[in-house]
Simulated assay, not measured.
Amino acid sequence: MAKDTSKTLRAALTATAPVFFGYIFVGMAFGLLLQKAGYNALWAFGCSLTVYAGSMQFVLVELLTSWVGLAQTAVVTLAVQARHAFYGLSLIDKFKGLGKKKPYLIFALTDETYSLLCSVKTPEGCDRGKFYLLISALNQSYWIVGGVLGATIGELVPFNSTGIDFAMTALFIVIFVEQWLTAKSHIPALVGIVCAAVCLLLFGTGGFLPPALLLTVAVLVAGRRTIERKIGPPAEEPAGDASDGKEAPGSCR
């Protein structure tokens, strides 16, 4: 069993290597901004452990310094994180049969983790549930380490934080480029770009994201058969372990 876990861990480390380099530095950017707002490394650790919401954590810094009410915080959070509802819908089949692992997988579903879970294939001979769990846990650990490092550095070294919040946007761009280079078809990406551009013109920078996501999903659903004929159906993953902890037939032995 230890050998099987070691094999799955190595595979997860390899899969999450790009996220590691991104999250360490983006997490440091968050930690620096949080420290500049008057909160120390312990706050960075707590926020990254319990909130863990990527771009929303950057918004959280502003919310903490503005002392806004709970209702406004809830509305802002819903607006910023609304895209995760679409993420969850597209992963219903992938998360089937994962039992007790499912709540954490849902909690830890950031943009980058979602990207990996959609694109990476479970290595032959490894349990799908363990593989997904390790990917999610490793990504969160990278973010936590980055946040704590950033806040610690901010306390020890004077640092000009102007423009540092662009780090999250830069990470999104890197992931988009990587997916563009490896994707069988660029139709979904082009649909997303066009829908975002149209909604940006119609609704402005402050409110374009939710309608852009809705429009993108609607177009992709309408053209699903055409896209599938072009790139072929997705490969089936082996079933994960059930809630009682039993492994699937294709899991590590």
Score class of each variant (00 low, 15 high):
residue 121 K to Y: 03
residue 249 P to D: 13
residue 28 M to K: 01
residue 195 C to T: 15
residue 218 A to G: 07
residue 246 K to G: 07
residue 242 A to I: 11
residue 244 D to H: 01
residue 241 D to H: 07
residue 63 L to E: 05
residue 41 A to D: 02
residue 2 A to Y: 12
residue 214 L to N: 03
residue 10 R to V: 07
residue 146 G to A: 01
residue 132 Y to D: 10
residue 5 T to H: 12
residue 10 R to G: 14
residue 238 P to W: 13
residue 18 P to S: 10
residue 251 S to V: 06
residue 198 V to Y: 09
residue 178 E to P: 06
residue 34 L to T: 06
residue 249 P to T: 08
residue 205 T to A: 14
residue 231 I to T: 12
residue 144 I to Y: 00
residue 181 L to P: 06
residue 2 A to I: 13
residue 250 G to C: 09
residue 105 L to K: 04
residue 226 T to H: 13
residue 195 C to P: 09
residue 115 S to L: 10
residue 214 L to M: 14
residue 142 Y to P: 03
residue 175 I to Q: 07
residue 89 L to R: 00
residue 238 P to H: 14
residue 17 A to T: 05
residue 135 I to G: 05
residue 102 K to M: 14
residue 111 D to C: 06
residue 12 A to I: 03
residue 77 T to G: 10
residue 48 S to L: 00
residue 52 Y to D: 07
residue 233 P to M: 10
residue 173 I to V: 15
residue 110 T to F: 00
residue 136 S to Y: 04
residue 132 Y to S: 09
residue 104 Y to H: 11
residue 133 L to G: 06
residue 58 F to G: 01
residue 218 A to N: 10
residue 216 T to C: 12
residue 177 V to K: 02
residue 147 G to W: 04
residue 196 A to V: 10
residue 248 A to S: 15
residue 7 K to W: 07
residue 66 S to L: 13
residue 225 R to P: 01
residue 95 F to K: 02
residue 248 A to R: 04
residue 206 G to R: 14
residue 69 G to Y: 11
residue 4 D to K: 04
residue 72 Q to F: 11
residue 143 W to H: 03
residue 9 L to A: 04
residue 88 G to D: 01
residue 230 K to E: 11
